[in-house]
Amino acid sequence: MSKAQQSYGREQVVQIINSVVSKIENVGGDATTTGIFKELKSLQRVIEEARADIGSTRPTDIKEKHIPIATDELDAVVESTAEATGTIMDCCDVIQEKAAETGGEAADTINNEIIKIYEACSFQDITGQRITKVVATLKTIEEKVGKLIEILSHRLPIEEGEATDGDEGKTIEERLLNGPQMPDKAITQDDIDKLLEDF
């Protein structure tokens, strides 16, 4: 963006329009100025509506809450599939060793099937790479939203209100359904057992 363009940002445009509208209102005028006045009023309304729309999307929530949660969840998917795949391959190693000790046609069959399991485990690498790409995209969106907030923050009407948790309109039961918890936020089975015992 050039310096000339920067010097006429959204704020300045709104100020100019407000100023012109105010002057025309004070001065009054003929049909031509009335026409201009109507156009400017219309433009003013469009800008105010756009501002309200952007505010209602709560860009701060998108940057500080929704996207970080989504990326954390996706990272957890990669981690848990890697762990599960590791366990599957550990089991395969044990089965292969036992089959080798046994020998014979059955051992060959087992070995061939184990190879297929190993081949199938490459899903973890592929899904991991795909999820990493999605996380990178989300981080790009996060940056863009951050820049949008920097530009508009003090002019967004919703920012002055109470923060929302995104659960508006949900029943109590629906609010309880959050799916698997992140490891650092989840309570253990032991904690749950203890909690139940205390009832």
Binding site: A82, T85, M89, I115, Y118, C121, S122
Partner: peptide, 16 residues
């Protein structure tokens, strides 16, 4: 490979 899973897969296939 930066994925441990893939290293294990290739290593096992090479062993075979």
């Amino acid at each position: 490979d930066d994925y441990n899973t893939m290293l294990r897969i290739i290593k096992n296939l090479l062993k075979q």
